[in-house]
C-alpha cells in the first residue's frame, strides 16, 4: 500500500516534470517563465522552512533571509572558489560527460553544505534566543538577519558590496526535485511524533512542557530544520542567479517570506506552497507596471488579511474531494508516513 502510494506520487511528479520539459523544449515555456518557476521552487522551500518554525512550532521568526543568505554564500563560495578547479580535474579524469555528471554531484554537495551551515546557524541562534517569546523573538531574529547582512557587506573575501558572482549551474530540474524533496521532508516531519510535539508547543507551550515534551529541544530542532531549508533555497538561488549580493537578503526579504506563509495559511503545507506561488506570480505578473506593483500587492495583502485573517488555507490542507470522502482520519494518523 505504502509503496504503491509512493509510486503513484512519484509518477505524477515525474509526469509534470516531463510536461514542463516538453513544453519548454517546444518553446511554450520561455526562459523567463522557467526562471520564474525556479524562483517559485526557491520560495516554496523557504516558505516550508519558515512554516515549520512559525506555522507549526509557533515561533515568530523574521530573520529567514539571514539563513537564506548564509546558505547562498556558503554554497556560492564553494562553487565559485573550487568549482573551476573541480570541473577541470573531473573533465581530465573522467572525460567530458562523466566529468560533468560528477561535477553536478559536486554542485549538489555545495547545496548540501549551504543547508548544513545554515542549519548550524539555526541552532546557534536558536539555543540562546528561544527563551524569548513572541515579539521579542521576532525582533531578535530581525536583528540576526541584519547582522548577517552587515557582516557579508564587510567581508572582502565574499565580494563585499560588489556581490559574489557564481556560475549558473542549477536549473529547473534541480530546483523542482529539491522542492519536492523538501515537501516530503516537511510533510513527514510534521506528521511524525516530533512534528506533533512541535504543534503542541504552538498550541500551548506550558501544557506541552507539562506533558513531558522537551520544548527547547523541539524548538531548536524546528529552527535547525527551517534554517537548513532556507540555506538549501539560498544555495539554489546562488547557483541559479549568477550573482549574490548581501542586500538581496535584507529584512524586506524576510517579510516577503513571512507574508507568503501567513497568506497561505500558517501551519498548512499546501497553504504555504500556495502563498509562495501566488506571491511570486503576482510579483512577476505586475512587473509591467512597476510603479503600481507594490501598491496593488499591499492593498491586496491588507484586504486579504481583513477578509481571510487565517490565510487562504488556514491550518487545513487542500485535499481532493473524492479522497476526503474515502479517507478516515484515524488511518491518517496511524499510517501517516
Amino acid at each position: 500500500m505504502r509503496w504503491t502510494k509512493y509510486l503513484i506520487w512519484l509518477a505524477a511528479a515525474g509526469a509534470f516534470y516531463a510536461l514542463t520539459l516538453a513544453l519548454s523544449g517546444a518553446g511554450f515555456i520561455s526562459r523567463f517563465m522557467l526562471m520564474t518557476m525556479v524562483q517559485i521552487c526557491i520560495y516554496i522551500i523557504m516558505a516550508l522552512g519558515l512554516n515549520l518554525i512559525t506555522g507549526f512550532t509557533g515561533q515568530l521568526s523574521i530573520g529567514h533571509a539571514g539563513f537564506m543568505s548564509i546558505g547562498a554564500y556558503a554554497a556560492g563560495f564553494l562553487a565559485s572558489t573550487y568549482g573551476g578547479r573541480v570541473s577541470a580535474a573531473l573533465t581530465e579524469a573522467l572525460g567530458g560527460a562523466g566529468g560533468a555528471a560528477v561535477y553536478y554531484i559536486f554542485i549538489l554537495a555545495t547545496l548540501a553544505a549551504g543547508a548544513f551551515v545554515a542549519a548550524a546557524f539555526g541552532v546557534l541562534l536558536g539555543l540562546p534566543t528561544l527563551r524569548l517569546r513572541g515579539d521579542y523573538l521576532a525582533i531578535a531574529t530581525i536583528g540576526f538577519g541584519e547582522i548577517v547582512r552587515i557582516v557579508l557587506l564587510n567581508t572582502k573575501a565574499l565580494g563585499a558590496s560588489s556581490g559574489l558572482p557564481v556560475k549558473n549551474s542549477v536549473g529547473w530540474t534541480t530546483a523542482y526535485w529539491l522542492m519536492l524533496l523538501s515537501v516530503v521532508l516537511i510533510y513527514n516531519f510534521v506528521n511524525s511524533s516530533h512534528g506533533r510535539a512541535c504543534i503542541s508547543i504552538r498550541e500551548n507551550e506550558i501544557a506541552a512542557e507539562t506533558m513531558g515534551i522537551n520544548t527547547t529541544k523541539y524548538k531548536v530542532m524546528a529552527f535547525a530544520l527551517g534554517a537548513g531549508l532556507a540555506g538549501l533555497a539560498g544555495g539554489i538561488y546562488a547557483n541559479h542567479m549568477y550573482l549574490i549580493h548581501p542586500n538581496s537578503f535584507n529584512f524586506l526579504k524576510s517579510f516577503e517570506i513571512l507574508v507568503m506563509v501567513v497568506l497561505g495559511g500558517l501551519g498548512s503545507i499546501t497553504g504555504c506552497i500556495l502563498g509562495a506561488v501566488v506571491m511570486t506570480v503576482m510579483n512577476n505578473a505586475l512587473s509591467a507596471f512597476p510603479e503600481m506593483r507594490m501598491i496593488v500587492i499591499s492593498v491586496l495583502l491588507v484586504v486579504m488579511m481583513i477578509f481571510r485573517p487565517n490565510g487562504l488555507m488556514g491550518t487545513t490542507e487542500l485535499r481532493l474531494p473524492f479522497r476526503r470522502k474515502a479517507a478516515g482520519g484515524k488511518e491518517d494518523v496511524t499510517h501517516g508516513l
Binding site: F255, V259, L266, I295, S298, V302, I306, P309
Partner: peptide, 21 residues
C-alpha cells in the same frame, strides 16, 4: 479578534502601501 500575525502582516502591507503610494 484574529491572530496577532494577521495583524502584523496587515501592518507590513500598510507600510508598503504608504511607501509606494
Amino acid at each position: 479578534k484574529s491572530t496577532r500575525l494577521a495583524a502584523l502582516i496587515t501592518a507590513i502591507g500598510m507600510s508598503f502601501f504608504l511607501e509606494y503610494g
